[in-house]
Write a protein that binds this DNA or RNA. Structure first.
Lengths: 192, 192
DNA sequence: GTCTATAAATGGATAGAC
DNA sequence: GTCTATCCATTTATAGAC
């Protein structure tokens, strides 16, 4: 039975995570402290330990939440019937997702927090994202592991450049459709 | 006149930079302190201020040094006569450069150190890298700004994936030639 | 040029009262 | 469940002696 106590606990946990995300967006993924998070939610630092066992545990929950958000966003997407159109849409969705929240992107896809390694449970969510991507690519006729790797390099590269070199513009996001065409022309030209 | 004093000063400066790089490689780009750098070179932390005005100044010198290394490496490269072979070689060189030193890659190409912005002088070196790349691409018949942007997305994407997801393997570096072929097939097919 | 001393703050984390 | 108090370490940086 999920009683009020448990629900309240969960709500506070979420408040803490939200505060951590907010600070990460303001000052960088690694630019915040437990003290600041606590202040943000109207607590003192030690109280956070009733909800998370360590700062790493907060990063881990953020990692899981970010992966879940990507999964949810992909699921909620309008899905064109044509597999190639779908692939194009998935690429746009992914890059937009990254650009919308740079620290989230850094946490999920760059290894940038010293010492942080996602827990198996959190990593499983990231694996699930990749699994679905494999399905979408396969539907469009792209099945080789090398092609999947090339795809991830391509879309993360567009996201990286956009976030790092033109955070407020669209210089690289504007290239997504063109990049997908390039990719498909190459990968579908030489099946087998 | 460059006397002994000035040369000695420069040598110590370099020792400090080397120590900072070493620590960055061991514990992550942001995972080291001035105290540790000082210990590494046999000093106490305050003495570093005779060589660098702040920790940011050390990051800035590292940024400049990293850019200079990439420039030097590109210059020292064997240069195939065929422009397309040259482009292929440049791509391999770039990805190898990134993979050889992940923190250096993160410092130069990802905005990952909270608050750090390279000085104009250091950034000019990074611009010079891009300028030379433009020349190499132009020689191969790739001139549009969009194509240059797509190129940087492609090679940084390969580097990002290699460094973040297979740091000790060659899963993405093995794709460099294939990626260049894909890029050229697309960009040279539709000139003008 | 390097040191000690110290500022002034901040870090993550724990013990134990309420 | 949240607090105060505190640990113990560490942070970047400056002042001033040697």
């Amino acid at each position: 039975m999920t009683d009020r106590r448990a629900r309240r606990h969960e709500a506070t946990r979420q408040e803490i995570l939200d505060a951590a995300w907010r600070l990460a967006r303001e000052r960088g993924l690694t630019g915040w402290s437990l003290r600041e998070v606590a202040t943000e939610v109207g607590m003192r630092a030690p109280s956070l330990y009733g909800y998370f066992g360590s700062k790493e545990a907060i990063y881990d929950a953020m990692f899981a939440e970010g992966s879940a958000q990507l999964l949810a966003r992909t699921d909620a997407m309008p899905r064109p019937a044509d597999p190639v159109d779908l692939l194009r849409a998935v690429a746009r969705e992914f890059v937009d997702f990254c650009v919308a929240d740079p620290p989230r992107y850094q946490l999920l896809f760059l290894r940038v927090v010293p010492g942080f390694v996602p827990s198996p449970a959190s990593y499983a969510l990231a694996e699930e994202v990749l699994e679905r991507l494999r399905g979408v690519l396969a539907a469009a006729g792209v099945t080789s592991e090398r092609a999947v790797d090339l795809w991830t390099a391509l879309v993360t590269g567009l996201a990286t450049q956009q976030v790092s070199n033109d955070p407020d513009g669209t210089r690289w996001t504007d290239l997504v459709d063109h990049a997908v065409d390039m990719f498909l022309a190459s990968e579908l030209a030489t099946p087998r």
